[in-house]
């Protein structure tokens, strides 16, 4: 029997804002029936960039339903900028806490919110772009690293509680341990929430950029018929040329900034600026 707070029970028995906004400005779908929980969040945003309405539909346990319900209550009337900063911990705290094995329910709420905002702004979601580490639940390395950082996780069990990664067949346990060690080492001496900054030589920097472009960015763009080539690296300025369908795509600027730059900043250096070679 789970120890649920009165708030969780209340939001489970009397969920608020159930349903779907018909002419939603942003839709976020996360999870799947195979995984055991799924959430569809719809939001309405006005001209002042304020979320005026939020509705949800959730398949899942009591804490998944309560997290979704609480999230919609928190969102209504919230500025989009503030919503972007909402964390899973904010949701869990608003519910008076969740059992640690159920923290992934609050993470699902946050991910749905990010997906809905990205849908609204037309941005590409960074988290889904990582490499899948847990195949049972489709959890990427970026999602795991972020959960470790934001919630100061210290064990593989924690990772499973927060992201579900490792909760199926368990084959990824070694990879999770490696990610944990790496991330915790990177966090030591760093203020939380800030990407690690390492001193690196120009050569190391170029190599690292090349590697991230080849390994992650290129395959992702290729899925949509696009392509990318690294042209030059000068200090913090990275010049690339977008090709294929990306070259003529009107949202290529968004792709460049929201995805390529963000990816390189996350994985190489926080100060990088990506520009297109015209």
């Amino acid at each position: 029997m789970w120890e649920y707070t009165d708030k969780v029970q209340d939001h489970f028995i009397n969920p608020r804002n159930v349903g779907e906004i018909e002419d939603a400005d942003g839709v976020g779908n996360v999870g799947s029936i195979a995984c055991g929980d799924a959430l569809r969040l719809t939001i309405k945003v006005d001209e002042n960039q304020v979320i005026t309405d939020a509705k949800f539909k959730t398949f899942g346990c009591a804490s998944a339903i309560a997290s979704s319900s609480m999230l919609t209550e928190m969102l209504k009337g919230m500025k989009l900028e503030d919503a972007k900063r909402l964390t899973n911990d904010d949701i869990a705290r608003a519910l008076g806490g969740l059992p640690k094995e159920k923290m992934h329910c609050s993470v699902m709420g946050r991910e749905a919110l990010e997906a809905a905002i990205a849908d609204y702004t037309g941005a590409i979601l960074p988290m889904a772009q990582g490499e899948v580490v847990c195949e049972c639940f489709g959890v990427t390395d970026l999602e795991i690293i972020r959960a470790i950082r934001e919630n100061a996780l210290t064990s593989v069990e924690d990772i499973t509680n927060f992201t579900k990664a490792g909760g199926g067949c368990g084959k990824c346990e070694g990879k999770l341990r490696a990610l944990l060690t790496e991330t915790m080492a990177g966090e030591a001496g760093q203020p939380t929430g800030v990407a690690k900054k390492k001193r690196m030589t120009t050569l190391e920097k170029i190599k690292k950029i090349e590697e991230v472009v080849e390994r992650e960015i290129k395959p992702t763009l290729k899925k949509d018929g696009g392509d990318i080539r690294l042209i030059d690296v000068d200090g913090d300025f990275v010049t690339v040329s977008l090709r294929g369908s990306c070259a003529n795509c009107h949202s290529s600027r968004t792709t460049l900034k929201e995805y390529v730059e963000r990816k390189l900043r996350e994985q190489v250096l926080e100060s990088l600026i990506v520009e297109e070679d015209k």
Binding site: Q9, I13, F59, G60, C61
Partner: peptide, 14 residues
């Protein structure tokens, strides 16, 4: 189908 067991059990528990 399409609903989750724990949620059902907690409603039954009520």
């Amino acid at each position: 189908e399409y609903v989750e067991g724990e949620a059902i059990l907690l409603h039954m528990n009520q």
